[in-house]
Amino acid sequence: MINVKHLTKRYVNIAAVDDISFDVGEGEIVGLLGPNGAGKTTTMRILTCFMPATEGVATVAGYDVFTDSLNVRQQIGYLPENVPLYLDMRVKEYLMFRAKLKYIPRRERKKKIDYCLEMCGISDVQNQITGTLSKGYRQRVGLADALVHDPKILILDEPTIGLDPNQIRQIRQVIKDLGQKHTILLSTHILPEVEMICDRVMIINKGKIVAMDTPENLMKQLKSSANVVLEIRGDGEKIKDSLSNIGGVRSVVWKEKGDASEFVVEAAGDKDIREDIFKCIVKDNYTLREMKRQTVTLEEIFHQITTRETEGDSDNA
């Protein structure tokens, strides 16, 4: 449904989006994950025809975003980052205006709007001026607007930002439900969100896609090179040397911890080194107090991938 090839957007001094390519298939929910300034919003603005790319092609629902922009815009529902609304209108009036703009036939407007009000849980505030709504409710109005013409594709820029935990739960459920009928591209910095609702994740950093996979695979991929944390009594330097000599260990970091030392051992590749470590410790007669494998969350993957720039081996899909 969304097809992006070698897309680049350059501002005067930086490339906000730098040669990215990806596809989003029909019915998929894809999360665009990245730190501040990664280029998420820029990518979405290009896909929604708000601004042009410097280079590259993007097609949405089969239409080119540059040459066929009106058709693209008819097919998408877009929730911009800060949910801009006309603050002087009532919720229902606003949705009515948007429905007209999106060419919903007069007879269907009321039905569609009522459906969206219901879906986004804003039926109660439909006669309130949008300017007096709380941030979370504005977010919902924005979502209702994105949905109102029943678009094939939804592009949601940080849909849950600024919501309280309950509302986040609700909105996530709404998005998940929508995913049954729509193709969704959403951006976020919140990792559990991606784990929960996305079929696929793209991690983007400094305008480049650094990883793209299902949330499970990403975690598996990195778990294999997971760290082992040890607490051992004995001479720290010596222990470090013996640990470093185990085959398959990439690095060892240690620090004093009370009368013992704490070691973080990183394995190279997907080898499980715990048994080797244990044998090594027994052989050299140290006292092992604790050994645990650091469970890798998407949080850490995100951190690792987005801060690992000196190493050139990013996991490009």
């Binding site: 025809c49 009106l70 801009p84 703009l101 999106k102």
Partner: peptide, 14 residues
């Protein structure tokens, strides 16, 4: 200024 230009111009209007 308010950013509504973004919602406006990304809807199917010329």
């Amino acid at each position: 200024k308010s950013g509504t230009i973004e919602t406006l111009m990304t809807s199917p209007v010329s």
